[in-house]
Computed example of a mutant assay.
Amino acid sequence: MPSLELKTNVPLADPKPFLLEFSKFAAATLGKPELYISVSYHYNENLTFHGSFEPAFLMTVTSLDNLTPALNEGYSKAFFDYFESKLGIANDRGYITFLDPGRVNLGYKATTFGTIFGK
Rank of each mutant, 00 (worst) to 15 (best):
M1C: 10
P11H: 11
P11F: 11
P11N: 09
D14Q: 13
P15T: 08
K16C: 01
F18E: 01
F18I: 07
L19R: 07
S23Q: 00
S23R: 00
F25M: 05
A26L: 11
A26G: 13
A27D: 04
A27C: 06
A28F: 02
T29E: 00
L30P: 04
G31F: 12
K32T: 12
P33R: 04
L35Q: 15
I37G: 03
S38L: 14
S40R: 14
Y41P: 13
Y43W: 13
N44C: 10
N44S: 14
N46M: 07
L47A: 10
H50P: 00
H50T: 02
H50M: 07
F53A: 10
P55G: 06
T60A: 14
N66S: 02
L67R: 06
T68G: 03
L71S: 08
N72L: 03
S76M: 02
K77H: 09
K77Y: 04
A78N: 13
F79G: 07
F80C: 10
E84S: 02
I89W: 07
I89R: 11
I89V: 15
N91S: 11
D92Q: 13
R93Y: 12
F98E: 00
P101Q: 03
R103L: 10
V104T: 15
N105M: 08
A110N: 14
F113C: 06
F117N: 09
G118Q: 05
